[in-house]
Amino acid sequence: MRLGRGARITLGAITVLILGVIYLPLFVVGVNSFSTSQSLSWPPPGFTLEWWGKAFRSAGALEALLTSVQVAVVATAVALILGTLISLALQRFDFFGKNVVNLLVILPIALPGIVTGIALNNFFRTIMGVPLSIWTVVIAHGTFTIVTVFNNVIARLRRLGTSYEEASADLGAGIWTTFRLVTFPQLRSALFAGGLLAFALSFDEIIVTTFTAGQGVTTLPIFILNNMFRPNQAPIVSVIAVVLVLISIVPIYIAQRLTSEEGQKR
């Protein structure tokens, strides 16, 4: 398709503007992590690596990082297993209430985090009588990480169709053998992409986490929020933010590469 010169310039300018609004603040954070100012003043008065050194020696930050990784890994594992099972159920079998289940599975991703957070908080403490801990965070994260795996896997199952599974059954393989030898190998990249997204979502989640984390359970985003306005901590927070951005880029990039490669293969 060809566009006129005027249209091209206008559209280009709008694109630059919007991307600028999204990415300039991130750039500022990156610059601040090297700034000699402690209060994020602009422009930065000087350059220093002090904060990077301090951040990597800060016990609180490292512990928070570890907590976040633990939560994200378990929430992703839960999502992979449950997300795959539910997509198989919804895509390959017929049962009563199928459409309702489908809707209920996808819904959590659209629910406001604050609603999910308050609801779960209430549910855990007053109804179940379970003390908040790292596990309550994992369960809470599971409510929306399942969706990312589910979406990826069900789309793949739909595209694969049933003929490979039928061919496998036809050649004598039972249901589990078929899953192990035929279905799973073809779901692998969808699971990887869905898992990476689940990990990224869980890793930087803050609202639901705030309401479901037990005493002393501090994930990285919560650590940042707590330290943001403390004196002398702001530049360290900037360092952590930069690290978070870098960690988040990798899985998103890989997931996108995977999905587009798959798309080209077919």
Binding site: S163, Y164, E166, A167, S168, D170, L171, V182, P185, Q186
Partner: peptide, 13 residues
């Protein structure tokens, strides 16, 4: 019985 499928259904992996 075994089937030869219309789209062959050869396992791509």
């Amino acid at each position: 019985v075994n089937t030869v499928f219309q789209d062959y259904a050869l396992f791509p992996h």
